[in-house]
Design a binder for these strands. Structure first.
Length: 296
DNA sequence: ACTTGTGTTGAA
DNA sequence: TCAACACAAGTG
């Protein structure tokens, strides 16, 4: 029932792209009633006496059980997912580090290590990841090729690319003490979820953007459910000393509703900012955006 | 009765 | 760290 091929190549339709799994020879054992040429295995995957496969990962001097799975491949993927969250970049992966893995790490940024582990254990991880990936590709299609500008961010524990949604030149009021960033209404309408003008039925939540240092920038918004990860960045102006604020966005999950506040002009809407980031290292040159020093 | 996952150990 | 193995705890 179990094959003894030393290696196998899987082509996948999902988002793992082409994955090559290298199996390592394993000592034969026969404590199982029959069968038993369980000959190869993935890292972090351990055979169960009933033909199922268990997944485990070691972190901080302790073994963390990830659950049991019907196939060793599922178990191997569970290990990989846990490894992405628990280890930093390094560490062996059962499946090659593809762009999907990169996307997966972005997906995981929405959750704590415990959340990720729990989702892996209760089986909700894969579906959620698939959902995220699906939404992600949808976003890529929406943004027109002309505006599509890929930028590479180097986060503290991840590296990924994203698609620029829009860019806006900062105004004096944007960098003033009003704690708000005004963006053209057309951008809000085009890229953010629709929000009703109804002032009553809504709870204030926050929309978080992450800069290249994965520092969170929280904007007041209105939401119903779900989460979203967006990116924000600052770039140099062309000729003069102007700086521009670039807002990139990658929707991670559906169900979020953004609170854009009151519409002022015919053309603009504003975003209230809570200036979330806790501690920041001081810097010399640059300016402050919502009180947060911006290096240039 | 069968499955899951922890205890434990020896090897890398 | 890591996985092999034994077996107790958990499930229905």
């Amino acid at each position: 029932m179990v094959q003894d091929s030393p290696s196998m190549i899987l082509s996948n339709d999902n988002n793992y792209g082409t994955i090559r799994a290298t199996k390592r020879a394993r000592v034969l054992h026969d404590h199982q009633t029959f069968n038993q040429h369980v000959v190869a295995k993935f890292k972090g995957v351990v055979p169960q006496n009933n033909g199922h496969w268990g997944a485990q990962i070691y972190a901080n001097h302790q073994r963390i059980w990830l659950g049991t799975f019907k196939s060793e491949i599922e178990a191997a993927m569970a290990y990989d997912s846990a490894a992405i969250k628990l280890r930093n970049g390094d560490s062996h992966r059962n499946f090659s580090w593809s762009d999907s893995n990169t996307q997966e790490s972005i997906f995981q940024n929405n959750y704590s290590p415990e959340d990720v582990l729990n989702m892996i254990r209760d089986g909700s991880y894969r579906p959620k990841l698939a959902d995220f990936l699906r939404t992600q590709s949808q976003i890529d299609k929406i943004s027109s090729p002309m505006n599509q500008q890929t930028r590479l961010f180097h986060g503290t524990d991840s590296q990924f690319s994203c698609v620029q949604l829009f860019q806006k030149e900062l105004t004096p009021s944007d960098v003033g003490k009003l704690n708000r960033l005004v963006i053209p209404k057309r951008f809000a309408v085009k890229y953010f979820p629709y929000i009703s003008e109804d002032v009553d039925d809504h709870d204030d939540l926050e929309l978080v953007f992450y800069d290249r240092n994965m520092r969170p920038w929280k904007f007041s918004h209105r939401a119903e459910d779900g989460q979203k990860l967006s990116l924000i960045d600052v770039v140099h102006g062309n000729n003069n000393g102007d700086k521009s604020c670039v807002v990139d966005g990658d929707e991670m999950q559906v169900g979020l509703e953004l609170k854009l506040g009151q519409s002022r002009g015919e053309d603009e809407k504003e975003l209230g900012l809570e200036s979330s980031s806790s501690t920041h290292t001081v810097e010399e040159k640059g300016f402050r955006l919502f009180g947060v020093p911006i290096n240039v």
